[in-house]
Design a protein around this nucleic acid. Sequence first.
DNA 1: ATTTGGTCGTTCGAATTCTAAGCAAGTAAA
DNA 2: TTTACTTGCTTAGAATTCGAACGACCAAAT
Lengths: 168, 168
Amino acid sequence: MSDPSPGLNSEQLGAYFALMEVSSLLQYAVDEHLRADGDLSYVQFQILARLVDSPEGRLRMTDLADGVVYSRSGLTYQAGLLEKRGLVTRAPSPDDERSVMVTVTDTGRALIAHVLPGHVERVRQLLFDPMKGRDLATLSSVLGRVRTHMRATPPRSAKPRAGRNRAE
Amino acid sequence: MSDPSPGLNSEQLGAYFALMEVSSLLQYAVDEHLRADGDLSYVQFQILARLVDSPEGRLRMTDLADGVVYSRSGLTYQAGLLEKRGLVTRAPSPDDERSVMVTVTDTGRALIAHVLPGHVERVRQLLFDPMKGRDLATLSSVLGRVRTHMRATPPRSAKPRAGRNRAE
DNA sequence: ATTTGGTCGTTCGAATTCTAAGCAAGTAAA
DNA sequence: TTTACTTGCTTAGAATTCGAACGACCAAAT
């Protein structure tokens, strides 16, 4: 691996590695804080945050799993834990008996409100402090575009997500 | 400290979420490919890639774990799997009887060489295709700076005995 | 030489995660 | 309706992960 690969130049490789490394380190850091401050794992925080962010404070299991990039069974497990703690409730959807709507409780909202300032502060210190000038604007723009691109590109043998290729 | 504001503006929040989401999606995609093409998990690929990249093709367990952002016990487990498959060997260091040097075998090198083109191709398609102009340069610069910043800031109270990578 | 303190890697148990299989409910076509 | 297929979620079991405890080793004092 001493010579540049046919696909990526060294700057691209460096950016790729840096991206994965930064996200890992960041996740470790915020996970630690969330556990100490609210006894929440990063995944649990993500789930609750998405629910709080949603218009009605509730989402279907599948949409939640897709949003968090998580397996459905994994979400079932975590939703069970959160429900046991009274942070969310689960109830079958009126529209579709198959669906399960997950709803944040007031306790859940309060917990997120409690941990959010510290969470955000860590992110700021670790991620945004070393940025300057137009760094943020560019990063935001590029990553937003990449995200859209990835969400639109089904990874070949992709998960049966919202995507659909069964046209045969 | 700086400002008493809640922490992050909406652009910062968006960039943060996009970063975590992009890295998750990217890891999912490349993990899928690595398993199909070389029966490797992403972590295993990272371990082997770091070894191949190292000058002597071997590293200490601890340095490997720190580099990959992984727990030591987790690395012990994965190193065992890789050793069982003949992709690496483990031997106590001559310098320090406590250390274990992990070394890539020729088989390991061959496997990485086999999966690398496809791996890199996926990364290019997903991550770099939607970029243009100075996007890459900025991303590379910013993430590199952030990484250095994070590595310098002890993420955990005193867990992984950081501060060894000074002259690198 | 012994003590003290720190580092290295593994083992252990518990928690988390995934895939595959399964069931229930919706949809489409006959 | 019946049939077949699809979707939504859960269950089951295996695999992976982490943190804490452990034993071995090193280095610096004593």
